[in-house]
Design a protein around this nucleic acid. Structure first.
Lengths: 112, 112
DNA sequence: ATATATACTTAGTAATACTAAGTATATAAA
DNA sequence: TTTATATACTTAGTATTACTAAGTATATAT
């Protein structure tokens, strides 16, 4: 039941978190899911059906670029995503928005 | 442009903020819009078309109840909303979820 | 008498994340 | 060898949500 609210609250920050992970360097989808889950201590556990549409959207908007890995040592082909300058710039704006909103929420919710 | 992301981030916390305002006592729609705008320093400026559907939803879920004011001193009829026990309980869960998510975001975003 | 502020309602739209499936490859187990 | 599992990406369909943009109605100020 409160699941529903939790999901809604997570919406909107996912794009920002994915971008943030990509500031560390190029990464592929599955890796992003794993790192997001680990670094958030299981709070953000995305399914593929959630992450990939996000990546496609970020790519459409020019915030990331993708490149298929040259099939080196017979591994499963991977599509690597990397930040663009626009992505870096937008990420800063996203975080500024997030801070504003989070501060607004905290001041309204007070000390619970 | 970053407008879009800001909007998405605000989604999901609106129900919680409306409920929080109602912990102070019964309030009507227009009043909630004004208080939310003031107390959040303009960050959360809802239009009627945004707030009322939220109130209807909260009512459907049994988190608030509504009562039309008895038309006392010839004022415009007002529909007052008040918290239910279920609303108070759910609000606590919502805030717990919010804290988890906000902490997760901060730890991932690091010190910007 | 008219304009403005208050107050609530509703239809239609866009955006987002989810569920649930599918395809394909590499590696481990049987 | 065959099967199962983990990796990796894709897509269709659905539900939820907030928004825009109207509309209705009343009280008060001009």
């Amino acid at each position: 039941m409160q699941e529903k609210y939790e999901r809604q609250m997570k919406k909107g920050v996912l794009d920002m978190l994915v971008l943030q992970l990509l500031t560390e360097g190029r990464k592929y989808g599955y890796q992003l899911i794993a790192e997001l889950r680990e670094k958030s201590e299981e709070i953000f556990s995305l399914k593929e059906g959630t992450l990939y549409p996000i990546l496609y959207r970020l790519e459409d908007e020019g915030l990331v670029e993708s490149r298929w890995s040259e099939p080196e040592n017979r591994q499963i082909p991977r599509k690597y995503y990397l930040m663009t300058d626009k992505g870096r710039h937008t990420l800063k704006e996203m975080y500024r928005s997030w801070r504003q909103i989070a501060d607004g929420v905290e001041s309204l919710m007070g000390r619970q």
